[in-house]
Write a protein that binds this DNA or RNA. Structure first.
Lengths: 148, 148
DNA sequence: GTTCTTGCAAATACTTTGCATTGGC
DNA sequence: GCCAATGCAAAGTATTTGCAAGAAC
C-alpha cells in the first residue's frame, strides 16, 4: 500500500477533509503511508510518543480521519484497532496469519457485485457504504512448524 | 439462524469439543440459538446474570467455543464482540445499519472461490481457515430520516 | 477422586471525555 | 483573534488473570 504521497499531498488530504494541517496529523499519515500493512494504534502511539504526540491525539485523529474516509479501520481480531490509508479502489484486503501475525494483501474481492447481490436479497436496506473482508489462515512458515 | 437444536444436541456439541457439559454452557448456547442475529457479549452477560452466571464465564466460554468452532465472532465495529452459533455452510454474513443498528443476513459471499483466488495470489500463505465479511450501510428507515 | 469449570476480586488493556492551553489560518 | 486541535489527567468500558471453592465425569 505504499503509494508515496508527498508531504504536500498529505496536507491536501487533510485540508480537503476540512481539518487544520498540524504536525501530529501529518506525522500520523506519513507513518501509515510508510507501513506496508495496517498499523495498530498501539504501535502508532509508541512512535508518536517520540515526537511528543499523545496517544489521545492518535485516537482522535484516526477516528476523525476514518469518518472522512482518509483512513480505513481493519479488524484483525487482535483486540486493538488497525488502520491504513484508504485504498482508492477499495478492493484490497488482507490475509492474516493467526499464529505469527504475518499479513499480506490480496485483491479482487469484487465488492460491488456482492453488494448489489446483497441489496437484492435484503429489502430492508437502502445503501451499502462500506464493507469489511479479511481472510485468516496460516502462512507457510507457521503451517510447517505446526505440523512438526 | 435459528435452526433449533434440542438441549441434547447442544450438549453433544459441547461434549464433542471436549468440554464438560455445564449449565452456563448450555444456557449460553441456547441464548445464541434463540437470537436471530449475533448477540453482543454485554447483552448476553446481562441475561446470564439472571441465572447467576458471571460475565467472566461468558468471556471464557465464548472464547473457548470460538477456538473449537462452535461459535463465530463477528465484528460490527461497535466496540464489543458479537457472537453467533457457527453456520455450517459458513456462507452467511451480515448487513449492519450504521445508524440504528439494524442487522440482516445475506447469503452467497462465495468464499471458497475468493479463498482460492487469494491463495493463488499470495504465495506466502498455506491455508485459509476463516474469513470475516460484513457490509455496513443504511437501512431504509434511516436513509429516509437522514434525508429529511 | 481427579480434573475441568466457575465465581469473585482484581488487574490489565483499550478508548473516550473534560478542560485549560496552544497553534493554525 | 477565533476556533479547532492538543496534552494531560481522569473516567469509562472491555477483557483477562489468579485463585479457592464447586461440579462434571
Amino acid at each position: 500500500m505504499s503509494k508515496k504521497h508527498s508531504q504536500e499531498t498529505l496536507a491536501t488530504l487533510i485540508r480537503n477533509a476540512g481539518y487544520k494541517v498540524t504536525a501530529p496529523r501529518l506525522l500520523i499519515l506519513s507513518l501509515l503511508e510508510q507501513s506496508k500493512y495496517p498499523v495498530c494504534i498501539k504501535d502508532l502511539a509508541s512512535r508518536l510518543l517520540k515526537a511528543n504526540v499523545d496517544q489521545v491525539t492518535a485516537y482522535r485523529t484516526l477516528s476523525a480521519f476514518e469518518k472522512s474516509g482518509i483512513v480505513t479501520q481493519v479488524d484483525f481480531k487482535r483486540g486493538s484497532s488497525y488502520y491504513e490509508l484508504r485504498d482508492e479502489q477499495g478492493d484490497h484486503h488482507h490475509i492474516v496469519c493467526t499464529t505469527w501475525h504475518k499479513v499480506e494483501d490480496f485483491k479482487g474481492c469484487e465488492y460491488e457485485k456482492l453488494a448489489a447481490k446483497a441489496l437484492r436479497q435484503v429489502k430492508a436496506f437502502a445503501t451499502i457504504t462500506a464493507h469489511s473482508f479479511e481472510f485468516f489462515g496460516l502462512c507457510k512458515g507457521c503451517a510447517v512448524s505446526i505440523k512438526n
